[in-house]
C-alpha cells in the first residue's frame, strides 16, 4: 500500500499491485487494438496504424482506420469495459460471485427488446434502441418487484432468475414468430457480434460510460463498506438503500447500452471481475481493474474470432466458450481449495 500525502491535507491510498495489473491490462488492450486495426483485407503494420492514428497516413489509410476499423475496436473496448464494470457492481450488490447480468435477466430483457423489433421489422438503429429499452425496462421491473426497504441481494437474485426464465420463454416464442431471414439475423445478434459496427454504435455507450464511470468510482468507497453487511455499512454512515439504487441504475444502464451496441456478449460481466480480483489480489470490489480486464477480454476475443476461425465468428461465441471454461475451472479450483 502506497500513501501519497500533500501539505494541503490531500491523501491518496494506492495499491501497487492493482496499479501494475491495471496498467498492464490497459497496455495489452491497446496493443491488441493496434493489431486489430491493422488486420483486414488491406493489412497495415503496427507502425502504419500508429502513424495513421496520429494523423500521418494517406487519405485511404485514414478512411480505413477511422471509419472502418476504429469504430469496431472502440465499440469492443467500450462494451468490454461496460460489462466488466457492471459485472463487478452486480456481484457486490447481490454479494454473490455468480451475480451477473446474464444470470439476473437484464441481458435477456435487452434481447426481448431487440427481438420485438426483429419480428415487427425495423432498422438496426431501432433494434439497438429497443434493446437498450428492453434492458432498462427489465431493470426497472426487477427493482420494483424486489424492492423492500431497499433492494436485498437475495431477493434481487431470486427475482432476477425468475425474470430470466420468463424472458427466455418470451424470446424463444418471438424467434419462432420471426420470418426465417430475420430469425437468422436475430440469432446472430443474440450471440453478440462486433461486425460492421460504426460510430453510431459506439457513441451512446461511450456517453453512458462518461457519466457512469465517475459516479461509480466516487461510490466505490461506500460500495466497499457494504461488503461488511448492511448494518455495519449503515453504522459507518453509508445510506445503503440510496447507494443500491444508484448502483443498480448505473449497472443496468451500462449493460443495456452494451447489449444495444454489440448484442448480449456473454460471460464477460461474470468473468472480468473475478479475473481482475485474482490478478490484483485485492479483497472485495475493484471497479476499475474489472473494467480494464473486461475491455481486454472483448477485444482479444474478437481478434481470436477473426483470425483463428476462417468464417467470421461472432465475438460472443468466443467469450462464451472462454468464459464458460473459466467458470468451470474456477468452480473446480475453489472446490479443491475448500472455499466452495
Amino acid at each position: 500500500m502506497i500513501v501519497i500525502r500533500t501539505p494541503g491535507g490531500v491523501s491518496l491510498r494506492l495499491r501497487p499491485r492493482s496499479l501494475v495489473v491495471g496498467a498492464t491490462a490497459a497496455l495489452l488492450a491497446l496493443a491488441v487494438g493496434v493489431l486489430a486495426v491493422g488486420h483486414g483485407d488491406y493489412p497495415m503494420s503496427p507502425a502504419d496504424v500508429l502513424r495513421t492514428l496520429t494523423g500521418g497516413g494517406s487519405p485511404a489509410e485514414e478512411f480505413i482506420v477511422t471509419e472502418l476499423r476504429l469504430p469496431r475496436l472502440v465499440t469492443g473496448l467500450a462494451v468490454g469495459a461496460a460489462l466488466g464494470l457492471a459485472g463487478a457492481v452486480f456481484q457486490a450488490l447481490v454479494r454473490n460471485p455468480l451475480g451477473s447480468p446474464d444470470v439476473l435477466g437484464f441481458t435477456q430483457g435487452a434481447a426481448t427488446g431487440a427481438l420485438v423489433v426483429v419480428v415487427l421489422g425495423g432498422s438496426s438503429a431501432t433494434l439497438a434502441g429497443a434493446a437498450a429499452l428492453g434492458g432498462i425496462g427489465t431493470g426497472l421491473l426487477i427493482y420494483l418487484i424486489a424492492w423492500r426497504r431497499g433492494v436485498h441481494g437475495y431477493r434481487l437474485v431470486l427475482v432476477g432468475i425468475g425474470m430470466w426464465a420468463i424472458l427466455s420463454g418470451v424470446n424463444g416464442y418471438l424467434l419462432t414468430r420471426a420470418p426465417l431471414m430475420e430469425a437468422a439475423r436475430a440469432v446472430l445478434w443474440l450471440t453478440g457480434s462486433l461486425d460492421g459496427r460504426d460510430w453510431s454504435h459506439a457513441g451512446p455507450l461511450l456517453a453512458a460510460l462518461a457519466v457512469t464511470v465517475p459516479v461509480l468510482l466516487a461510490a466505490g468507497p461506500a460500495l466497499r463498506m457494504t461488503e461488511l453487511g448492511d448494518d455495519a455499512a449503515s453504522a459507518l454512515g453509508v445510506s445503503v438503500p440510496r447507494l443500491r439504487l444508484l448502483l443498480l441504475a448505473a449497472a443496468v444502464l451500462l449493460v443495456s447500452l452494451a447489449a444495444a451496441a454489440a448484442g448480449p456478449v456473454s460471460f464477460v460481466a461474470l468473468t472480468a471481475p473475478h479475473l481482475a480480483r485474482r490478478l490484483t489480489r485485492a479483497p472485495g470490489t475493484n471497479l476499475l481493474p474489472a473494467a480494464i480486464v473486461g475491455a481486454l477480454i472483448v477485444v482479444t476475443a474478437d481478434q481470436v474470432a477473426l483470425r483463428v476461425f476462417p468464417s467470421q465468428l461472432p465475438v460472443g461465441v468466443v467469450t462464451g466458450v472462454l468464459g464458460g471454461g473459466y467458470l468451470v475451472w474456477l468452480l473446480a479450483t475453489e472446490r479443491r481449495a475448500g472455499r466452495l
Binding site: 461488511l228 453487511g229 448494518d231 489480489r281
Partner: peptide, 11 residues
C-alpha cells in the same frame, strides 16, 4: 455500532 454478525470480505 458493532452489529451482531458483520461479514469480513474474503481475503
Amino acid at each position: 455500532l458493532l452489529p451482531q454478525s458483520p461479514t469480513a470480505p474474503d481475503g
